[in-house]
Structure formats: C-alpha cells, structure tokens
Design a protein around this nucleic acid. Structure first.
Lengths: 228, 228
DNA sequence: AGTAATAGACCGACCGTCGGTCTATTATCA
DNA sequence: TGATAATAGACCGACGGTCGGTCTATTACT
C-alpha cells in the first residue's frame, strides 16, 4: 500500500470519523477493525499505533462527541441575560432546532443507536455525554435555586434525574421514528407530542415550576421531525 | 465425556444458572461459550441444541429474571386494601427488604452489573425488567388517577419516567457501594441517604403527592445496606 | 552543507481465541 | 425397529491484536 504520512492529529480524527460512520451504520460489534482501516486507507499496524484497541477507538469517539456537545452548550451558561428557566428552555429549543435541522442524519443516528446490537455504542456515548452534561446542569439548577426561580434542594441529584429522564425521551423518539417509518406518521406524531408534553410536565413538577414555564415541544415539532 | 441425559427443562435452567454466575462474575463478553459448557458439564453440540447463540442465552437469562421479578410484584396489584400510594410504598419497602436481606449477593451483583465491561448484560436485563414492570406501574398509576390519590394525566408516560429514574438510583447505589468498599462507609451512607431522599421527593413531585407520602428510604437503611 | 542518528508513522503477515457448524454416536419412544 | 431428540467434540472461519521490520522527516554533529 502506498505510504502516506499525515500528522497524528489528522490521522486520529480521520480514524474517529470512519469509526463514527461505520459504527453508526453497522453497529460497533458488526464493524471490524479491518473495515475501519480499509475505509481510512491505513494499515493495521498504523491503526494500533494510534489506538490501543478497538474499544479505545470507541472511547475516543464518545469523548469527541461529548466535547462537541459541551461546546454547543457552554454559551448558555455564560449568557447573563438568562435565568435558570430561560436556560433550560434555551437548552430545549437548541436541541429542537438541531433535531429538525439534522433530521435526516439524526434519523439514521437514532435508528443506529437504538438497534439492539448497538447497546455498547449507545451506552458509551451516553455515559460520556452525561458526565459532561451533569456539572453543567447542576450549575444551572444551583443558580436557579439561588435566584429562587426554581426549587432544587439538591441540585446535583435533581440534575442527574433530569438527565435520566432525557434518556427516556430518546427512547420514545426512536419508537416514534420506527412507527413513522412503518407508515403511521400521524399517530406516531401524536404519540411523540403527547409524550413530550408529559416530559415537560415532569420537569416542571420536579423543579416546582409553574405549569407552562417549560416548553420542551412546540406546535408541529413532532410532525416536522418525523416527516423529514 | 460421559453422556448424561436430563430433561430439556432442567438442562436449560442449569445452563442459565451457569450463565448467570459466569456473566455476573466475569462479564458477558469475557465469558466464553466454552466456559459455560465446562461449568455446566456439557458439550458444545448440546449447548447449541438448546440455545441458538450465546446471545440467546443472555436473552433467556434476562427473561427469567424479569419473570421472577414480576412474580414478586404481582401480589401487590391484587391486594384490594391498598391505594396507589400504598402500592408504591409497598413496592419501595419490598425492594428495601430484599436489598438488605440479600445485601451480600446484591453487592456482588451490583458490582458486577455496573462494571464497564458489563454494559450489555446490564442493558439486556434492564430492558426485560422494564418491559415487564411498565404495564404493572402503569396500572398502579391509572388506578391512582381514578381514585384521585395522585395526579398522572398520562399514566404510561409517567410510569416510564418513574422507571427511568429508578435506573439512576441503581447507579448511585453502585457508586455508594464502591465508596464504601474504599473504606469511606459513613460518607457513602450519607450520600446515598441524601440521594434517596431526593429521589423520593422527585417521585412525589411528579405525581403531585403531598411531601412525605412516599417513603423510599427509612432511617439507617443506607448504613445497613452498605455495611452488610 | 553533508551526513549520521533518532523518532515515530506505517506496513502486513501472522497468531490465538472464540462463536458457531457439522458429522457421528447414543438414548428414547411410538 | 425405525425415527427423532440429545449429546459429543473435531473442526471452521473471522476477528482482534501482535510483531518484526521499513520508510521518512527532523535533529545533531562534523
């Protein structure tokens, strides 16, 4: 094979790129190291020069995703014009916008991530994401408690619970996507809408917020997302 | 090897028994089919006569655990003397009792289940458990809504969220166990207690119950569990 | 400037392990 | 007694990972 030399940083990211595409498309277990290096145009030796194991590649992928996600969130904490509720709503709005924007890829991602053979991939990413998001969320709640805009006696515990709930949303979104793909878009949208409503309600109740202060969904979101 | 013949039912359960011990101890991925059949005293051919794959064995294990757990819960639904809140409290009390009774094994189980190499095992079991528990929980909430003892506009959605929260508790219990094993029993117990307090609070708030109506923990529970 | 030395990116044949298959053999029962 | 269910274990191919070695770019020295 032709010998092409690149900077370690570039190579590493290329490998993670390939891993992301392959893992998401075929699952972690179903992707072989040989698949990765073929796609990356690299030898086995080179691969193991950069990553200690296939698992380490997964770890690096999860870490990169967590980092990216954190970069998206950080501005919200720094914005002094927002109170805690505003920050939470901004978080939800942000994630909505992203979901609709990237619906096509996201659909694939969701479908891939929740395939039963992909639990490992899913869990690693979720773990990394949660680890990165928890301090962030805790800080939002802590400030909210200070401001008196919400009631979270133990901000970290409450934050962790909110993140646990978020997982449930992801699962339901996947169910809705599958139902929509099976042709039943309307009822899937209805189901998703109603579920997100309940989710919002739960968040409000946990933080003792007045009903209606948290807007996790907006009119037509479910349909727009599922129909994309 | 001597040829021993047993009824399919017995063999199946023996294999699942071995799988349970081995998977929990060394993890699913780290346990080979050869390990299982060696421990069960069986040939490869016999194994694949009963299970289509190693994965199918895991599935069967998860299903059996779910079935057992359901059998433990069912009496609660049938008891007419309990209202919804009573049933939830009974559920918590039950799980507390079980936790303290079987603390030694449970410690192992928890430690095993949350080892990073055990995500697959953990997830499968959780999935089976959730699938079995959700209708049960939904029914409790539905009746509670009917009785007016709690407020769950969408019982299934709320039930699913409560189950999602339960996961968080399991994770925190694991963290506490590790901390306790590292010698810091007191602060681990304090942490766990405070966390369970928050968990109870969240449940109450989600269901709009008066504060104090749900008792997930009781004085000394965390210490008793961790010190066992 | 020319050259020797070093680092480390890169290569691919090879190996051990593991899930799973296949054929042969033995028990059970209609 | 023939059919079928149960058991045995040799065998297979794929896969993750290793290893000895090559190639190239940079640095150190004369």
């Amino acid at each position: 094979m032709a010998r092409i030399i690149k900077s370690p940083d570039v190579r590493t990211n290329e490998l993670i790129d390939c891993a992301q595409r392959l893992f998401f498309e075929h699952g972690y277990e179903n992707t072989t190291v040989n698949d990765v290096i073929r796609k990356a145009g690299l030898s086995k030796g080179a691969f193991y020069h950069y990553f200690a194991s296939k698992e380490a590649l997964l770890e690096a992928l999860a870490a990169r995703m967590a980092r990216q996600s954190l970069d998206e969130m950080r501005p919200l904490l720094d914005d002094p014009s927002l109170d805690a509720v505003g920050r939470l709503n901004a978080l939800f709005a942000n994630s909505r916008r992203m979901k609709v924007d990237m619906a096509p890829q996201l659909k694939n991602t969701f479908n891939a991530l929740f395939k039963p053979e992909n639990i490992v991939l899913y869990h690693r990413i979720d773990e990394a994401l949660t680890a990165v998001t928890l301090p962030f969320m805790t800080e939002i709640l802590r400030r909210g408690q200070e401001e008196g805009t919400l009631d979270a006696p133990d901000p970290e515990a409450m934050a962790l619970m909110l993140l646990n709930l978020r997982l449930g949303v992801a699962k339901v979104m996947h169910r809705a996507l599958q139902q929509a793909e099976a042709g039943d878009v309307e009822s899937a949208a209805a189901m998703l809408d109603s579920w997100m409503q309940s989710y919002g309600l739960a968040v409000e109740r946990i933080l003792k917020l007045p009903e209606g202060s948290i807007q996790v969904t907006e009119p037509g979101f479910a349909r727009a997302f599922l129909a994309a």
